[in-house]
């Protein structure tokens, strides 16, 4: 999986969690929370989706890495790089 694939995966997850938000214009370096209406339950959903789709466990202490799109991508890419895109 490429960096762009990982970014798209995050976008897909966000689209499911926040269907009323415009996620096409997300800025990678600004906190997701400041751009779309996400609460702590939504972040929990991201963690659950990653576990469900890719068997990846994000420990609670690492949640801060998911605050921005750039953070998500750099945190998750090493874990997903060897995976095929379809899963």
């Amino acid at each position: 999986m490429t960096i762009e694939d990982v970014r798209q995966i995050i976008l897909n997850i966000l689209a499911d969690i926040a269907p009323d938000e415009d996620i096409s214009s997300i800025d990678d370096n600004t906190k997701l929370r400041d751009q779309i209406d996400l609460d702590s339950m939504d972040f929990l959903d991201i963690v659950m989706e990653l576990r469900k789709r890719f068997n990846i466990e994000v420990p609670e202490k690492d949640y801060e890495h998911l605050a921005t799109m750039a953070g998500c991508v750099s945190y998750l890419t090493p874990l997903l790089k060897d995976r095929p895109l379809a899963s």
């Binding site: 929990l44 659950m48 068997n55 990846i56 466990e57 890495h65 874990l79």
Partner: peptide, 24 residues
């Protein structure tokens, strides 16, 4: 219920060997 279901899901998946725990 959601928060605890998440914990339960984590527990159940950890019983299987395939779960990868991330570390930064």
């Amino acid at each position: 219920g959601v928060i605890v279901a998440n914990e339960t899901d984590k527990f159940l998946r950890q019983l299987r060997p395939s779960l990868v725990t991330a570390s930064a």
